[in-house]
Simulated scan of single mutants.
Amino acid sequence: MNFKRGVRNEELEINFIPLIDVLLVIIIFLMVSATFSRTSELQINLPTADANAPQEKPLTITVEVDANGRYLVNGKEANGAVVSDLSAALTQAGADGPSGKEPTIIINADAKATHQSVINIMEASRMANYTHITFATQVNSR
């Protein structure tokens, strides 16, 4: 039933002007807030390979300590009860290498060795004037 006889129904239409206004504001905001980076090129001169003599392998002294406190310096047993004896063994092992180069002390301690035995090796290295000390580790494979 149509109670309004003379009134025509207007067609509904979408008003695009507010939508365009909002989109223009968003585009302007994005343009202002965006950072534009320029890619620049670096001028790099790469080195050429020359056939030089291989460098000398650095002198290493391996010090092993087991759970009982027994010390081995480069595979030779050392008396570790006194730090000065261990220092003398390190000095003797360092004298076998090239002169003028300080050796690297590699500490290979048993997992059940006491901390004091490792500290004794470090103190003996200090007394022998060896400052390059490193520790050997083992990867657990479970």
Rank of each mutant, 00 (worst) to 15 (best):
F3P: 09
V7K: 10
R8P: 06
R8I: 10
R8A: 12
R8K: 12
N9W: 00
E11N: 04
P18E: 04
L19P: 09
V22D: 07
V22C: 07
L23R: 10
L23W: 09
I27E: 10
F29N: 10
V32W: 06
A34K: 01
F36Y: 02
S40W: 01
E41V: 10
E41T: 09
Q43N: 06
I44W: 11
D50F: 08
A53E: 09
P54F: 13
Q55H: 08
T60N: 12
I61V: 13
T62C: 07
V63W: 11
V65Q: 03
N68H: 06
R70N: 03
V73L: 13
V73I: 14
G75S: 06
K76E: 15
E77G: 06
A78D: 08
A78P: 03
A81I: 08
V82Q: 05
V82W: 01
V82K: 04
A89H: 08
A93I: 09
D96P: 00
P98R: 06
P98S: 12
G100H: 06
E102M: 00
E102F: 00
T104V: 13
T104E: 14
I105Q: 00
I107Y: 01
N108S: 10
D110W: 02
K112W: 06
H115R: 06
Q116S: 07
Q116Y: 09
S117R: 09
S117H: 08
I121N: 05
A124L: 14
M127G: 06
N129P: 11
Y130P: 00
H132C: 00
T134L: 10
F135Y: 13
A136C: 01
Q138Y: 04
